[in-house]
Design a protein around this nucleic acid. Structure first.
Lengths: 339, 339
DNA sequence: ATGAAAGCGCTAACAA
DNA sequence: TTGTTAGCGCTTTCAT
């Protein structure tokens, strides 16, 4: 079913039908009604390829994320999709699996009009960012969320990483930890840096100085990361507290603890960024920093759509920060509170 | 950058360049090489709309799921995307939020060539399935996974729901439960029916007969579902065991227990379908039935691509069953084993 | 081995 | 208010 057939059915020209469908002012109400009725009857749908080709817009955005195996990116997708559905946009999803090369390949796929805009949370391994700059050069709106590239001039939606890092560390300190390790993704990620700075300043406050042997930079590869964490916990001077900067590393930490027969929280206390919003299902000994993932998705998508719609206007919503929540669970009584 | 410009740069005709790029036999190796080099140099990418319009294929599939807030659909997406990436396909994602009306609207969007195939796990509220049949009528390949529609003649990828239901129920029985409730999504879902049959047969085995007051059909709306579960647990003759047919309902159950100060597993034992593969993070009192979500995604995607590529051939891979795993956690010693 | 040209289905400028 | 027409960028048949 296409315009031509529809026009024939109605004894109208193709362009009249096309205009009627887009509610043009130059078509009489009567014909509009007739067209709409017929279109519905025959279940006519505009061919997105023809229309996209002609209008040079796709009504589609791309979301590029490392993975969907944790409870951060899931809700983010939810948030993005909810806004996109409102706006009548379609959402393409691409996973980098933390591999820089895949990220580059994916970005290259998007250079030729397939999408009207891109949202990305960069891979842990990405260091060169020319692919992203190239995309921006082509005039394709770009929004970063969570894992951002500081030096690229594009809107960014993040959480209050520095502060969260400090709060998390303080929480361990309050629970009696002395040797607190920071387990994180590569140092090049801004989330790593900021969370670490919060961690370091919290320690500095109580006059503990930086101990590089307690700072672990993983790289996103599950096996390698597990080895690193195992080594950390096997040492006789192992930490009594661990601040895991991302959920996945906390999970690995838990697995290693089980393997080494270390009791949490008796032997080691753990706190992590995590969105397992399943309070009841959580191990009661785990305190989490929870990011408002759904809101981050919605916010980033809203900004992207503003950019798409106002394309050409030189307006730049710079960084947007959405606060995360501390959900306390280390202490014996199961209380939970906000920061 | 388009074919025309590229052709001009090379002093060739558009069609020659086009053919060269698609490695046609009617182009000399020499020109092919030149074209490829120039294309790479100028970072030429085919315009997907022009190409899609002409070839009437989109190199895109749609994935329609209820939500991405749990650890089932996340890994499923992962699996699908991994296959799609191999095959050079793009993945559109749509969420129904368990609302039938949204599912219908989404399916309608896909009737006009936007995608070459569709994978769906239907919403809990879907009862009428004419929209899905209409899609099949149009010749768009369709694959169901997990939440299938039995009567539609399309490939289906599921887990061994009946057996899992029986295993889950037996596990509660072995742990001393006498009054076991079955908390599930609407009865019209095949997963509900099969898991329930497993549950009922396990009870029948020990001569306990069906007690309808212990069987709860929720509908996917979080608030309503919570009320239902709260009522169940407030009764004086409340169950001593709960088999939650989906992860989300287990989470709600946990929340209600916390609210009512019921201790798990002392007061109530809970078992559920869940993919929180975060063994260490789980509440040790929770036993789960874990579905191989990643594999389900991969399998369903593989079948869809076969369908897309062999379009016209009357071959129908009917139901594919992938077994789930029982991860025991109720008993005090933290053992885990497979079924 | 290369080129010319038709047309995929739609939109929009222009004509009537 | 409606119709005619020229492409959008690509693929493919047919001619050269």
């Amino acid at each position: 079913m296409n315009l031509k057939q529809l026009a024939k059915e109605l004894n109208l020209s193709i362009s009249a039908v096309s205009k009627a469908l887009r509610d043009s002012h130059e078509i009489s109400p009567a014909t509009k009604k007739a067209v709409l009725a017929k279109a519905k009857e025959l279940n006519y749908q505009v061919n997105p390829f023809a229309s996209g080709l002609r209008k040079q817009k796709s009504k589609t955005i791309a979301v590029i994320i490392p993975e969907v195996v944790n409870d951060f990116f899931g809700p983010v997708i939810n948030g993005i999709e909810s806004i996109a559905q409102e706006k009548g946009y379609h959402v393409l999803i691409y996973l980098t699996h933390e591999v820089e090369q895949k990220e580059v390949a994916i970005i290259n796929l998007l250079q030729n009009g397939r999408v009207d805009g891109v949202m990305i949370s960069i891979s842990a391994q990405t260091s060169d960012t020319t692919h992203l700059e190239a995309l921006k050069e082509k005039g394709i709106p770009l929004v970063f969320f969570d894992r951002i590239v500081e030096r690229i001039n594009a809107p960014k939606v993040i959480t209050d990483d520095y502060n969260s890092g400090a709060v998390a560390t303080n929480h361990l300190i309050e629970n009696g930890c002395q040797r607190i390790a920071f387990v994180s993704l590569p140092n090049k990620l801004t989330i790593t840096q900021k969370r670490m700075n919060g961690y370091l300043d919290a320690l500095k406050n109580i006059h503990i100085k930086k101990d590089n042997s307690l700072i672990l930079f993983c790289n996103g590869d599950e096996h390698k990361d597990k080895d690193l964490i195992r080594n950390l916990l096997k040492r006789k001077d192992r930490p009594d507290g661990i601040f895991a900067s991302v959920e996945k590393l906390a999970i690995i930490t838990y697995e290693v603890c089980e393997e080494l027969n270390l009791n949490i929280p008796a032997d080691v206390k753990v706190i992590c960024f995590s969105n397992l919003k399943t309070a009841g299902l959580l191990n009661p000994s785990l305190t989490t920093i929870t990011q408002p993932a759904f809101e981050i998705g919605r916010e980033a998508a809203s900004i992207l759509f503003k950019l798409i719609e106002k394309k050409g206007h030189h307006f730049l919503l710079e960084k947007t920060t959405i606060n995360s929540k501390l959900i306390k669970r280390i202490s014996t009584e199961k209380t939970s509170g906000e920061k």
